[in-house]
Nucleic acid binder design. Structure first.
Lengths: 244, 244
DNA sequence: TACATTTAATTGTCTGACAATTTGTTGGCA
DNA sequence: TGCCAACAAATTGTCAGACAATTAAATGTA
């Protein structure tokens, strides 16, 4: 592990990169212990605080974990789906908010991806997934529900749809798209009328999965996309009027 | 910005979380300057090295950037698509390799997502995207190409397909799926015979996009998935034999 | 005014120290 | 012998203070 001698960025960044590359390229395996901070400082010819900054960078990316005490130290971490989800969602959310992605674009992406899951979900959905979807549909029909709670339930419903495809890679990729859109969706006010329409479409989707009719799921998702889009446009239009 | 007084994790982690939350919840906007390290140390009642470790954590997540000199400091960073891509791909690649995702699962996810793009790509593809795809198809037909180069060209081709949908959110989500699979794909040896089959399928996909026939693109992608799967299975079978 | 110089603010790095935590070891005791 | 407590060692976590490097603003000068 060596640092490039002529590069400009911070020493701690260089060292972090050197170690990161070692992990990513498989030169260090899961649960392998890194040299102690003092040893790394010697190896890289820097002080311990600099090494520590590098290690904290890696910890922030969930690439290592540290343990105090004798025979403690930094260990290569096993990246779990849960943590990867978390990072992915954080990044996606920021990306959407900072880059002012339009509601249309986000919506289009989300439903395109969900439609990709539908055929798989039709063949693989478990009773559990169906039950979750039915339960959320029921909740969405309750009159006293706040907009936020309705939205959260919506996310749960759609995650169940995605998870029903029973493909962890798909679930991971889509978690970002669905959950990252929640802040955008939260801006929508769901009237009793619009909730009714959405519940009907959700019911059609759940039915399609239960009866294994992918074509109907596809159609319902198309309609839901179109409907969500009109709701979103109304909000945006109202907002524009307000600002003008 | 305050730290939870009763939590156990490192001070630097707590401080990083406090600042991260402020950024994610929009309490700090892009390009806003954070207090200097000395001020943060005062605010949080910790030493400067501890603050620095926290800031390095945030820098590792591309949430802030730092600038030296007078009126320098840490600034909330504008997260670009390119950086988000990079992080997403790194995480996805690690996830695939560490969790021993099967070739089948990864393949299924990848092509399901690509099929989701196809209809959009048919209506929106630019001359540029088509040209890229044709160029890569031509390259893939060259006899002297190494397996790695063939693979890289394959990735470029498929990224062009995804980008043709002209939806940055879709491109971002799929970059992980397509590029993260490259290490898995690299294990495959592409014979002249299999390359010919792939080139034919790629041609059909490009044709479908050019003629705006989404159904044909869908079919070709299904066939490509099935074919890739058989290639992958052969490799796995050979590998198993070798180990036995 | 235009340009060079100084100055102040800020991050980057180092040194050395001590606290906190965990593990292995040793010694005493039954 | 076998068990338990105290101790030693290794390692990360935190702190204080210092100096170097860098950069923008302020200042002085032609």
């Amino acid at each position: 592990m060596k640092t490039d001698p002529e590069t400009k960025p911070d020493l701690s960044a260089q060292i972090a990169k050197a170690i990161r590359d070692a992990i990513i390229e498989g030169r260090m395996i899961v649960d392998e212990r890194l040299p102690s901070e003092a040893e790394l400082a010697d190896q890289f010819k820097v002080s311990r605080p600099t090494v520590r900054e590098a290690l904290k960078r890696l910890a922030a990316q969930s690439l290592i974990r540290t343990q105090r005490g004798a025979f403690g130290g930094a260990f290569v971490r096993h990246l779990s789906y849960e943590e990867a989800y978390g990072q992915h969602i954080t990044t996606s959310t920021l990306l959407l908010s900072m880059n002012a992605v339009s509601f249309e674009t986000a919506c289009e992406a989300r439903y395109a991806l969900e439609r990709a899951c539908a055929p798989l979900a039709c063949t693989r959905r478990s009773a559990d997934h169906l039950a979750t979807m039915r339960a959320e549909i029921h909740r969405q029909g309750q009159p006293g529900l706040s907009d936020e709670a309705f939205c959260a339930s919506d996310v749960t419903f759609h995650r169940a749809l995605v998870d029903a495809a029973n493909n962890p890679v798909l679930s991971y990729q889509l978690a970002g798209a669905v959950e990252a859109m929640q802040p955008l969706m939260n801006m929508i006010t769901f009237t009793a009328r619009s909730r009714e329409t959405i519940v009907q479409l959700h019911t059609r989707i759940a039915d399609a999965l239960e009866h294994e009719t992918p074509q109907q799921a596809d159609t319902a998702l198309h309609e839901l996309e179109a409907y969500t889009l009109t709701l979103g446009r109304d909000v945006m239009a109202a907002r524009t009027r307000q600002n003008a």
